[in-house]
Nucleic acid binder design. Sequence first.
DNA 1: TTGTGTTTTATTGCCTCC
DNA 2: GGAGGCAATAAAACACAA
Length: 266
Amino acid sequence: MKRFSSSDSLAALVSTSSSKEEKTQNQTQGYTKEFQAMLDNLEEEDYTEDATHTAEKKRRLTLDQVKALEKTFEVENKLEPERKQRLAEELGLQPRQVAIWFQNRRARWKTKQLEKEYVALKANYEDLKLNYDNLERQNESLVLQLKELKAKLREENADSSNSVKEEECPVSVSENNISVQSQSHEISDNENSNPTIKDQISGLSSHPLMNWIQLSESRTILGNGFQVYQPHVVKLEEQNLFNTEESCNFFSVDQAPTLHWHFPEL
DNA sequence: TTGTGTTTTATTGCCTCC
DNA sequence: GGAGGCAATAAAACACAA
C-alpha cells in the first residue's frame, strides 16, 4: 500500500535518531532496563498523542544510516521491495523511510544532473558564440574589402569610359551603327596608342570581378533573367553603363528601351 | 541569540504500469 | 485497482552571519 497512516509515519519517526538524540540515548544507558522501558513508553505515548494533534518531530537519519543508503544508491538508484525491506531491517528504519530517502535522493541526483547539463550546454554555447563572432568579424572584413574593390573598379571604369567618351562623344545619336563601329575601331587604335588606358582595361578585365560584371552586362543587354544574379553589383554596373550611354547618346529615344523597362524599381 | 537561507525528511496528488 | 514513481510542497533541522 502506498499511502501510510500517521502511525506508520510515527513509527518511522520514532525509529530514527538524530545525533542529539544519540547523545541522550548514551546518557540514558545508566538507567535500569525497567526505567528505560518506562521512559520509552512515555516517549511513545507522547508521539501517539502528538500524532493525533499536530506535528510529530522529524528526525534526521544518522550518519551511518545515510552512508549505508548512499552506498546502496550508488549500486542501484531504485529499490526492489525485498531490497527495501532488507535495508530497512539492517538500518533499523521503516521500509517507508527507505523508500522516501531513495525518492528524495533521486530528486537530488536529477537536479545535479540538470546542473551539469546546464554547465555543459553553457560552455557549448560560449564556444559557438565565439566561433560566430569570429566569423562575423571575418565577414565584415571581407565586405569591407569588397567595397574597396568595387570603388576601385568604379574609378577605373570611369577613367576608361572618360577616355572613350572623349573620342566617342563627337558621334551623334542619329548617326548609324557604322559610325559607332568606327568609334570602336578608334578605341582599339587608341588603346594601341595610349598604353595607360590599355593597361587599365586589361587590368580591369583581369580582375576577378570583371568576368562576372561582363557577364551581367551582356545579360543586361541580351535580355531578361539577369536579375537572378546579385542585384547590388548589377546595379553598380548598370549605373556605369547607363551613364556612358546617356552621355554618349548611343541610342535614339524611339529605338532604345529605357532602363525603367528593364528595371521597374529604378 | 536570532533571523535567514539551505538541506533533509515527509506528505500529497497525480500518473503509469501490470 | 493496487503499487510505485515523480513533482510540488510543507515543515523540521541545521548552518551561519550579524
